[in-house]
Amino acid sequence: MIIGHVFERFVEESPVSVMVRGLLETILCPQKLDELFEKNAKTQYTKELLFSTVVEMMNTVTCGIRPSIHAAYQAKTSQMNVSVTSVYNKLNAMETDVSAELVRETGTSMEAIIRHLNGSLLDWLPGYRLKILDGNAIGASEHRLKPLRDCNSAPLPGQSLVVLDPSLMLAIDVFLCVDAHAQERSLLHKVLTTIEEDDVWIADRNFCTLNFLSGIVARKGYFIIREHQCFPWYDASEFRHIGSVEGGTVFEQTVKVSDDEGYLSSLISVPRFIID
């Protein structure tokens, strides 16, 4: 029972690493990953290279164990029945829906574990679910083709909107676009389909658009979003004093906003700070 003795030593000396390893093997179970791929892929198909194998290699790169996919492939050469070109072809053609669903399903599984272990943080707003939305344009990599490395206008890897649950400190959703030069706002129609009642969305002013805010209200959600200078509104009341914070006094004001569907007919604007 050599394996048993080795395992016991790890349990005694580094129990957290053993638990994390077991957790990742459960969440990223090859069978589950391959089923996810078959369920969500529309144009790709499985021939010899499994989706779970690609995820495993990507994990070693993401975690810094291997410097590149090529290095990850070389470390598994004896177990691979396809060429490294096939691996890159699989990655290059990976559909965004598959990648997004991978985040959602693993996020759902991780959430269940965190809540079962009472590991969530205190709710910022009890009775509501906060979701922080932010964009991420994936930066140019030194692994790009050499002639393009110094070209600012060269194609970038992609654009994404990521949803973070601050009580779980977990990314629970992602919306992807293969065009990194696309506006973040071009993905907001996808975000709207996921909004649930009593959600509270937190985002910066780039997401302060009439359609997005009205869509949140129409779905009985709420938002805390910084006002964009081009957002259309007009006064509906005078400023009201509501309290003080470190460095200033806080006032708030009711403003009127409406869209073609009549949503957002009345709302409270972002509190304004007047420094003493």
Rank of each mutant, 00 (worst) to 15 (best):
Q79R: 14
I172D: 00
G127D: 08
L117I: 09
S99V: 13
V174E: 10
L122H: 15
N92D: 10
P155D: 14
V162Q: 07
S83E: 06
G139P: 13
T106Y: 02
R144N: 13
L130V: 15
L145C: 13
H189K: 08
N81Y: 14
K146I: 13
A72N: 00
L121A: 13
T85K: 10
T96Y: 08
S86V: 09
T62K: 10
N152C: 11
A154E: 07
G158N: 01
H143E: 12
L122Q: 15
V174D: 07
I69F: 00
P155V: 13
L148D: 14
R144T: 13
I172N: 04
E105T: 04
K76E: 09
M80R: 02
A75G: 08
A154Q: 04
L161E: 05
M169K: 15
W124K: 15
T77P: 06
V163R: 01
D150P: 06
R185V: 11
G127C: 07
S153E: 12
A137F: 12
T108G: 15
T85P: 06
P126W: 06
K190A: 01
S160Q: 10
H116P: 00
S109I: 11
T77Y: 15
T62W: 11
K76Y: 10
G64I: 01
E101N: 05
R144Y: 14
H143T: 14
I172Q: 01
Q183E: 10
C177V: 01
C63S: 12
Y128P: 06
S153M: 12
V82P: 07
D97C: 05
K90P: 01
R66M: 04
P157R: 05
L164N: 03
R185Q: 11
V178E: 13
G135A: 05
N89S: 08
I69H: 03
G119F: 00
A140H: 14
A171W: 11
L156R: 14
G119I: 07
L125G: 13
V82L: 04
V98G: 00
G107A: 02
V98K: 01
S160M: 10
Y73I: 01
E105G: 02
R66H: 05
L187W: 03
D134V: 11
S153T: 14
L130Y: 11
P126L: 09
G127S: 09
V87W: 02
A75W: 10
L168E: 01
L133G: 02
P67F: 03
I65Y: 09
M110H: 00
K90Y: 15
S109P: 04
S83W: 06
T62A: 12
L125M: 15
D123V: 10
P67V: 10
K76F: 09
P155S: 15
L176C: 05
H70E: 12
A182R: 05
G64K: 02
Q183C: 09
V84D: 07
V174T: 09
K76N: 11
V174M: 10
T96G: 06
S120P: 02
T106N: 00
V174R: 04
D173H: 01
N118A: 05
E95W: 03
A171T: 13
R115E: 07
R149F: 02
E101I: 01
L170W: 03
P155Q: 15
L145M: 15
G158M: 05
A180I: 06
S160V: 08
A180L: 04
L170T: 03
L148A: 11
G107H: 00
L117P: 07
T108P: 10
L125S: 12
A112N: 04
A137C: 14
P157T: 07
H143C: 09
G135V: 10
I65M: 03
G107C: 03
S83H: 09
L145F: 12
